[in-house]
Structures are given as structure tokens and as C-alpha cells.
Design a protein around this nucleic acid. Structure first.
Length: 592
RNA sequence: GCGCCCGUAGCUCAGUUGGAUAGAGUGUCGGCCUCCGAAGCCGAAGGUCGCAGGUUCGAAUCCUGCCGGGCGCGCCA
């Protein structure tokens, strides 16, 4: 158990005991046992921890808060971890940590090392996170990047806080878009084979389609080749006055299935799907974003999960037939309209798959199922909640986190994001330009429900204005001090430093001690609020405290005790920076 | 029209679920390298927390109504 959590629990216990004494002696009476809340203070002058119990209870007891606070303080048991307790402001009890406590914090960090700040695995509920889940119809773009960075960072933070985490990518390999992709590949294949065919207006036009087509050609030769006229004759017009690209592409898909047969069509389809999923997986791997499972939408039908989910809704009386389709009575469950689950052509909808996947998640994960969605999907939330209710699952177990868009800037100039204009749009290009570390940090440095202005120039800057370099530089500087130490006659002696921790009495040192001790609370809080940006901010703050101290005083002094005490503190600081950066997928360089 | 999100320093944003004198970065201005990495530090200036009510010991935070911005309302995925 991290010491700071113990500290808060410790103070709560002290206050509870004091209240108990007051009650026993008949000085106070409560109807229900009060539960004290203890929080970190904002500024040093208010001590380290504050308790507002006197303000909460004063009214019911007909007392002035400060008077009550004084009574409580007088009965607080002694603790070697508390230096003093003051009454301040409207009635706060301010607790000042003793130097003994601060010494323990550094010792714990150095002892726990990479595990400092981590709670025991499995000590909290299971959480299944689904993130990215972009359609495998093209490369990931910078919009997906934020969801990926957010999901990966949050997963790591939740795991560090003791949750058992399941990370999943839902592969939409079932719908019409995939058919359009398959046909796009086939059309390029025909083009490469020398057939004269006009590419459909609604097809996927990216160069990667040619790559896949070439792959199909090298594997199947001319086996999938058909004459141009056979492919397009008799189809409705694609473009022009009475053309309709939507109608055309559907007809083309039908024609492709007829001409190619099951196995030929499947060849194009599988080549397209596998290439795209591999590409996305590789892209995310390089971004430090990984998954425990890539969940195939198609598998829901094959495994019977789809029918099982629909049957469950039917059993609950939530399905009805109308206009040849099967509808889900979502309006009775909080949604604003009923939803089709099986179309009049007999094919199930995307939403039906979602219901089945949702049920599957609930069955596999006993805790919370967390969706990380782009903000443009917020309209989807009520129907997911309705689905949970319809399945007979507590909708509280379904949690949705909406991630707002990222807007790219080059300096003050906004980067137009258009596939057509060719101005860069893929995540891969972003990584290549600014690097993985900067991209990961920038994506999570703002609250997920806030729009993000992503400045490419700033992300590439190698100066303190760039928060990533600023934090990494603090870490590199710390390692540099130890390298420098190696060039002197002195050797680092942590045990000696530990006996002299009370020598760290300057404001800079005290602030830094407080900050490194706060780290486990930051993890806990960031996990609870599902807010990786809290960690990003904390790391910047920690780096700032270090830089200020570094510029203010010298570490490699002649005094053996003081030098080793200071080395202990910067060693602990480096450890915390490393641990925190690891959670948001940013490296902690030894030198820069 | 209905629904969701957002309005905090010139700009970009925090604000520990209702606490103390609202904080960082950046920009502007002024300082600091004979010294462990100046990729850094110190200081100054900068605010009607969109507006108006309400809730209470206490509101940037919760409630209501406006104003302004973004997004969503398919038998698409």
C-alpha cells in the first residue's frame, strides 16, 4: 500500500478516534457515525492534508466550526507522522507531515522502484476497454490517434491502480463498407490486369487499394479476371444526372459476387481485410498501443452470439415485427426512437452486432464495460444504454467516454484535414513527423472532453515550451548528475542518505518531497476520473519543481550526508518520472 | 426543432467531484551561465470564471433561464 494512501487513512483514523472520545465523554452526540474526509491541501502554508469535518458537523451540532475544530484537535492522538495540526480558515484542520513521514516516502519509492504507485493487481474491479475500433477500410488518421492514445494511457493507468484490464479492438468486418472495400480492390485488380473499367464514385480511392490489388494478383494471377463489359454492363448509372453512386455500388457488389463466386469474392474480401487489419495493428504497435483481443464482428454471427443476444431481447419482450423488419423497442428503455435489428432483407444491422458484442463483453467481464468513442458518436449512447437494459444488465456497468476531436496546427496555421487534398492525415505520418513520444503526450495532455489544438511545430520543438521535452529533460538531467558523480571520488550511498533526509529542509526540497509522495494519489485519481491528462499535468509539475531546485542549488556537494540525501531525492524523482511517463507511453531518455 | 459537449488571463488549458488569496504553460517586458546539461531558472504585468437568478457556512464547480461555439438525430458503418 502506497504510503500516502496510508497517510490519508491514518489521518481519518486519528480524527475518528478524536470524535469517538468526544462522544464517549458526552461532549458531542451524533445520530450517525460521521466519516471524515481528508484531502491534499493546495498550498504549503495549509500543511499537507486538510480535514473539513468540523465545518460539516458544526451546523447539526449548533457549534461554530472553528470551536468544534479546536475540540477535535485537542483530542487527536499523537502520531510520529504528524508534525503539527492547525486550525485555519473557516474551520479546516490542517495536518503537517513530519520529516519522519517524508523520509519514509523516499525510502518507499527507492524500494518499490518500478512498482511505486502501483496498487496490487486485481485489487479493484475488472474493466473492459474498447477503443479505436476504426473500420478496417483505410489507414488510421490523426483523429483515431487521440482515441488510441487515450485508450492506451487510460488502460495502463487503470491497471496501475489495481484494476484487471481487458483491452479490445472491435473489427467491423461484416458490413457494407467492407463489401465496398472488397469491390474497390477487385476493380483495381481488373485495371492492373488491363481491363477497361471505370472506378466507382463511392469506391475507396487510396493508393493502398492498388497495393492490395497487386497482392491479390500475385497470389491469384488472372483467376479473378473478367471482361470489362461483363462487369459493368446492365448496371444502373453511377454518376451523371440520373446516376446514384449508392445504388450503383450495391449493384456492383452483387455483380462481383455473381461473377467471382463465393471463393473468388472471399479472396478479394480477405485480402482487403487482412491487409488493412495488419496495417492498423502495425501502426498501433509502433505507437505503443496494444490490445489483448481483436474482436471480429463476423465472429458474432458464426458463434451464434448474435442470435443469442436477439433471443434474449425477444424473451424480454423487447422485439416486434413491422414493415418486414425486426425492431428493438428502445423508446421504452430511454432511447428516442426504436431501432431495427434485422432488416427487411433478412440481414442484421450494425446495431444488432453491437448488442451481441455488448452482451458478450458483459458475460466475459464481471465489472465495467468502457467504450471510448469519438465525440461524433455521442448520439449512440442512449441506444447502447437501452440495449443493456433490454439485455437485463445493469446499465451502470456500461460506461461511455467521449473523446473530442483534435485539430492540427502548424504554428498558428490550421492544417486542413482533407483526404482529397493530400495534406497529411494519417497517424503514421503524424508519428513520422513529431515522433511517438510527442504524439502520445500531446494527445492526452488535455482533458478528453475538451477539443485539442495539436501544434505540430510545438510538438517538434526541443525547448521548454514543449512539455514533452521539458519532462524528458528533467529525467535526462537526473541521469546526467549520476554520470557526473561517477567521475568524482564519491560513490552514491542511499543508506547514508536515508539517515540524513531531515537535511532536505529547503523550500525546493520540501516541495519536491511532497510532490513525489503525491504520485500514487495522482494515479488513483486519474483512474477514478478516467482522466490521463491529470497524470500528464502532474509530470510537468514534477519536472518544474526539479528544474527549479536544480538551478537553485548544487547536488554534488562535499558533505557526504547532504549529498547522499539529495541524491536519494533526485533518484526518487527520476523513478517517479519514469513510472509516470511509462503509463502514458512516453520514453524516459538517459540522455538527450 | 430535440438531445449531448464546451465557454476560466491576449492565446492554449488546469482547477483534486462544493472549500481557504482562481493556477500553469505560452506570449510581452526585465534579469541569471568561471559552477552537476541555459533543451534550464528567477521576477513583473495580465481575471466581471459567457450573462442573470437560485441552492448554503461556502459556488469556476450543483439547479433554472438566456447568449455564444461544436457535434449528433438512417432498415449507413
Amino acid at each position: 500500500m502506497p504510503r500516502c494512501q496510508e497517510m490519508r487513512a491514518h489521518i481519518k483514523e486519528l480524527v475518528s478516534q478524536a470524535l469517538g472520545y468526544l462522544k464517549r465523554d458526552g461532549e458531542l452526540t451524533f445520530e450517525t457515525e460521521p466519516v471524515p474526509e481528508v484531502e491534499r491541501t493546495r498550498s504549503r502554508e495549509h500543511g499537507d492534508y486538510a480535514c473539513n469535518i468540523a465545518m460539516v458537523l458544526a451546523r447539526g451540532l449548533g457549534m461554530k466550526p472553528r470551536d468544534l475544530a479546536a475540540k477535535i484537535r485537542d483530542r487527536l492522538p499523537d502520531s510520529k507522522r504528524i508534525e503539527k495540526v492547525e486550525i485555519a480558515g473557516p474551520g479546516f484542520l490542517n495536518f503537517f507531515a513530519s520529516s519522519h513521514h517524508l523520509r519514509m516516502v523516499v525510502r518507499d519509492i527507492l524500494r518499490d522502484a518500478d512498482d511505486y504507485g502501483r496498487s496490487p493487481a486485481g485489487s479493484r474491479e475488472d474493466v473492459l476497454l474498447e477503443y479505436v475500433s476504426a473500420n478496417p477500410t483505410g489507414p488510421l488518421h490523426v483523429g483515431h490517434g487521440r482515441g488510441a492514445a487515450h485508450g492506451a494511457s487510460l488502460s495502463a493507468i487503470l491497471a496501475a491502480a489495481g484494476h484487471t484490464v481487458h483491452r479490445e479492438y472491435y473489427v467491423n468486418d461484416y458490413g457494407r463498407q467492407m463489401d465496398i472495400l472488397a469491390v474497390s480492390v477487385w476493380m483495381r485488380y481488373l485495371e492492373l490486369a488491363g481491363e477497361r473499367v471505370v472506378f466507382p464514385a463511392n469506391g475507396y480511392r487510396g493508393d493502398y487499394i492498388y497495393d492490395i490489388a497487386r497482392e491479390v494478383r500475385s497470389r491469384h494471377g488472372d483467376d479473378l479476371r473478367h471482361n470489362g463489359p461483363d462487369v459493368t454492363d446492365g448496371l444502373p448509372p453511377d454518376t451523371g444526372d440520373d446516376g446514384d453512386p449508392e445504388v450503383f455500388i450495391d449493384a456492383l457488389i452483387k455483380r462481383a459476387r455473381e461473377l467471382l463466386g463465393e471463393s473468388g469474392y472471399e479472396a478479394c474480401f480477405r485480402a482487403a481485410l487482412e491487409t488493412m487489419v495488419d496495417d492498423i495493428r502495425g501502426d498501433l504497435d509502433e505507437f505503443g498501443v496494444t490490445f489483448d483481443r481483436w474482436f471480429s464482428e463476423r465472429s458474432l454471427e458464426r458463434s451464434g452470439a448474435l442470435n443469442r443476444a436477439l433471443q434474449r431481447l425477444r424473451d424480454g419482450g423487447w422485439l416486434y415485427e413491422k414493415d418486414g423488419a425486426t425492431w428493438f423497442r428502445a423508446t421504452d428503455l430511454g432511447d428516442d426512437k426504436d431501432r431495427v435489428v434485422v432488416r427487411d432483407n433478412g440481414r442484421s444491422t450494425y446495431f444488432a452486432s453491437d448488442v451481441a458484442y455488448l452482451l458478450d463483453k458483459f458475460e466475459r467481464c464481471p465489472g465495467t464495460s468502457l467504450y471510448i468513442l469519438g465525440a461524433d458518436h455521442h448520439g449512440y449512447v442512449p441506444r447502447l444504454k437501452a440495449a443493456a437494459r433490454g439485455l437485463g444488465v445493469d446499465p451502470e456497468r456500461l460506461e461511455v467516454q467521449l473523446v473530442q476531436f483534435a485539430v492540427l496546427y502548424r504554428g498558428s496555421e490550421r492544417v486542413q484535414m482533407s483526404t482529397r487534398s493530400g495534406s497529411f492525415v494519417t497517424l503514421r505520418e503524424l508519428r513520422e513527423e513529431v515522433g511517438k513520444d510527442a504524439a502520445r503526450y500531446f494527445y492526452v495532455m488535455r482533458s478528453h472532453d475538451q477539443h485539442l489544438d495539436f501544434d505540430l511545430e510545438l510538438a517538434k520543438s526541443r525547448a521548454s515550451e514543449n512539455p514533452v521535452y521539458y519532462i524528458q529533460y528533467a529525467h535526462a538531467r537526473i541521469q546526467s548528475v549520476f554520470r557526473k558523480l561517477g567521475e568524482t571520488a564519491h560513490r552514491y550511498n542511499p543508506a547514508l542518505g536515508e539517515t540524513a533526509m531531515e537535511r532536505l529542509d529547503s523550500d525546493h526540497e520540501q516541495e519536491l518531497l511532497r510532490a513525489v509522495g503525491r504520485y500514487p494519489e495522482v494515479i488513483e485519481s486519474a483512474a477514478e476520473r478516467r482522466s490521463p491528462h491529470m497524470l500528464a499535468h502532474y509530470l510537468h509539475e514534477l519536472a518544474a519543481l526539479f528544474h527549479a531546485w536544480y538551478n537553485n542549488s548544487h547536488f554534488l556537494v562535499e558533505d557526504d550526508e547532504l549529498r547522499n540525501a539529495r541524491l536519494n531525492l533526485i533518484n526518487a524523482t527520476g523513478q517517479v518520472l519514469r513510472n509516470g511517463l511509462a503509463l502514458i507511453g512516453v520514453s524516459a531518455p538517459e540522455e538527450m
